[in-house]
Write a protein that binds this DNA or RNA. Structure first.
Lengths: 237, 237
DNA sequence: AATTGTGAAATTGTTCACAGCA
DNA sequence: TGCTGTGAACAATTTCACAATT
């Protein structure tokens, strides 16, 4: 169990397990095997066991994992056994949709503050929260003990705003601007890039990929039809 | 160049290169080295060259890559050297935000049709597009040559609706419902799970991870403080 | 009998290092 | 000389396979 290396994908899968376990719990199962959990998330049983084993031994040989307890352990590992105070910066299209997005609150991510630098928006009300100006940022983030910021501003102003946010001591940012933001090493940032996902689908369609199963993530078979037909220079092929 | 295996991450990085090249083009550079492209996207030069080499030899030794041409090649590979007709199903919070989201159109993903099964929403207008009922789905998708559907409906109804969409012959779906949808093997589906990204940030915060650099994706150092302090059963540790 | 937990093997992905070319 | 393209080396991740346990 020494020098564990926990990959980003392991953490993402924990999120999936957590959601699956929520369902399993509603179905009144007390235990679940790695096999069944894997089936529900289209993974392999070994993958499930390996992922969980990084964090401890939660199961019982011969029996499986206790649903409630495993769910609680994963919540603990992910840090969602508590609630988080969240501020949202940028109350445009995406921003205002996110204020109303129920899944955040359901998982304990509570949007407490809204900010925008547009004078016309300041003071307006979204779901009972009134929009503050960026001047108030630092004081309000501190007073409301905000630990996490969702950034939904245009790409052009994102870097300046993220600098400001970082100066206020925020260590975790979920960014919706389609741009690579620079932050100090001790600040965590994740970027949601919705266009990139559409581009991935576009790539899949035009290259007629054999659909990736959940077990094999490699996309073989690129090329033949599309690349040769349209004259790619592709070295030795 | 035989049996290339093109990974999901390679495709995602192509999207990044494409965006970087758009900027580089605006800055009036004619050529760019793998080193400079890597610097802008926080990758290694070797990674850039390897990614591109899967698809051909686009550069000139000693000089670098021609910006305009490389951008065009990547657009071709990703299938974004054309526009796509997109339909959006589910005109709730997220859905109506996406209708106005300019980045989609900017990359040639044009939302042409809106659908909802809420009688009150049918006929209403969003950005000049009027919302249709689900009964019209099949006919309208065909008549408007829709190839890609964005699904922004509640998790509870997502599977039923995706079944319907698949029956209409759609082969690519961008799903915003936080649920694992079942689709046939020849249908591509990508899921945007915004809560999962917050959970990842939450995990990072509570486990005080050393921030992942862009080169090393492994998160070492989980455990000590948090897990032992709160009494994880962790086998041999 | 069933299922976990985990080293070892297999596979996949990244980086190195250098030949080859402009 | 500078930089690409790529096989080989290395690293990370996944899967296998089986001992351990209930």
């Amino acid at each position: 169990m020494r020098d564990r290396k926990i990959s980003e994908s392991t953490i993402h899968r924990l999120s999936h397990y957590y959601r699956a376990l929520t369902t399993v719990e509603r179905e009144h199962f007390d235990t679940i095997s790695s096999k069944e959990l894997a089936r529900r998330e289209k993974l392999t049983p070994a993958q499930v066991r390996k992922d969980l084993s990084f964090f401890g031994s939660f199961g019982t040989r011969g029996l499986g994992y206790p649903v409630k307890e495993l769910k609680a352990k994963i919540a603990f590992i992910l840090g969602i056994d508590r609630s988080w105070n969240v501020a949202l910066v940028g109350v445009g299209n995406i921003g205002s949709a996110l204020v109303s997005y129920k899944e955040f609150g359901r998982q304990g991510f509570n949007i407490k503050l809204l900010f925008d630098n547009d004078q016309r928006k300041i003071g307006s009300n979204h779901k009972g929260i009134s929009v503050l100006g960026m001047d108030d940022l630092e004081r309000q983030l501190r007073e409301n003990k905000i630990e996490l910021v969702i950034l939904a501003v245009p790409a052009s102003s994102a870097q300046a705003i993220v600098d400001h946010i970082v100066n206020c001591g925020i260590k975790a940012i979920l960014n919706f601007a389609p741009i690579k933001l620079k932050v100090p090493d001790d600040v965590f940032i994740r970027t949601e890039n919705m266009v990139m996902e559409l581009e991935y689908l576009s790539f899949s369609l035009v290259n007629n990929l054999p659909r990736q199963s959940s077990r094999k993530k490699n996309l073989t078979g690129f090329g033949s039809a599309r690349s040769i037909a349209r004259g790619f220079d592709r070295g030795s092929v």
